[in-house]
Design a protein around this nucleic acid. Structure first.
Lengths: 202, 202
DNA sequence: TGTCGCATGTAACCCGTTACATGATTTC
DNA sequence: GAAATCATGTAACGGGTTACATGCGACA
């Protein structure tokens, strides 16, 4: 079987260009961290890589934007061929979700751990996920409008162009919020158990 | 910064040996798929690799078990030095959780997708996660006793040896069930929205 | 006759991570 | 004067996946 020409991360960048309009690699990284955080992560080096790949495939175009006293911005936009590639990927069955959660792994083997150290790590996890929950809630309030100035003769996100919010972004944000709430509830429950054991130890 | 001597997957295998007792690589793969499915995945080739790594580190020992008309089983058990390594890892702050969910990615860009194809993929996701939910529930009923015959002079899971269930396994299973329920609720909600749009399209 | 389960490995590949690199401007 | 932001890249490395490899017994 031959290797695919693109990967989920590729389509992640492509899709962001589709729903949010033309952007530089730098902007894409910021957007990625806000909007795609619940489902995919990417470093800036990866994004620049995918942009090069997609340019070679003809899925995106690049326009240089000159700036004084700063490096030029390279603004990428999705092409018609890019829209087709995006829809074709979306029609394929997705790969199976694979979690990789080191905190849960440490908890599972809790019998062999120092209770205090374990409790500390659970508390760290709670702080981390409380932060995520807040950010996702802010996303809904601040970023629910995926704005995009309509350009004549070009395709664009119909919701964004009309000033409405993209309903899929709202659905995914709800998902992310529900997810974090469930995650946190479990962590609090587990912490309670570990702290009880910590107490009995003394 | 130098590379670590071991990784989460390494400790996943090591921890399984700690809570479930001596096992072959083949057994570890089966256990892994059942117990660690909610938080980490591993192929058999990876497990054999980690066993080799840990044997070199002195964290596990191997004993060959001869069998007629089948390949010999190599039974691995955790050493005292392995227990120490496990606890040391557990005391370190865990790496940040990074989700990679291709289905959510496809949904987020739903504006540009064929609604019927998208709905089909959501239905696939529902089937997948309903299956997971069932398996995690069965885990709780069938595998809640992490049995392990007590061997004199050797360390072991105190819960398993006494015939009690490991409370951490129960907590993690509860987590996994709550997680899948939340995930499914969101998928049903999203499917409803997509099907409504599908209908209006006609 | 063929596929599934048992049982253990090796080889190739690449996405994703980490570190390195550059350099101006603005903020504390 | 240090740190953060803007802005774009390259290089090295390895964990994780996929495919290849072997061979017996049981079961349909």
């Amino acid at each position: 079987m031959q290797r695919p020409e693109a990967y989920p991360i590729t389509y992640g960048v492509l899709g962001l260009l589709a729903i949010s309009g033309p952007m530089s690699g730098y902007d894409l990284k910021q957007r990625f961290d806000h909007i795609l955080a619940p489902m995919w992560g990417a470093t800036h080096s990866q994004i620049y890589n995918e942009l090069r790949r997609m340019k070679e495939l003809g899925w995106v175009e690049m326009e240089r934007e000159e700036q004084e006293s700063r490096p030029d911005r390279k603004v990428y936009s999705i092409t018609e061929s890019g829209y087709e590639a995006l829809a074709a990927w979306q029609a394929q069955p997705p790969s199976v979700l694979q979690l990789r959660d080191e905190l849960l792994l440490k908890i599972l083997f809790g019998t062999f751990s120092d209770p205090e150290a374990l409790a500390n790590n659970i508390r760290r996890g709670i702080v981390e996920h409380e932060g995520r929950l807040q950010r996702y809630r802010q996303n809904l309030q601040l970023l629910s409008f995926v704005k995009q100035p309509p350009e004549p003769g070009k395709r664009h996100n119909p919701y964004a162009a009309s000033g409405e919010e993209d309903p899929y972004f709202r659905l995914i944000s709800h998902f992310a919020i529900a997810y974090e709430k469930t995650y946190l509830e479990s962590l609090y429950e587990i912490l309670e158990f570990v702290e009880k054991g910590e107490h009995e130890e003394k």
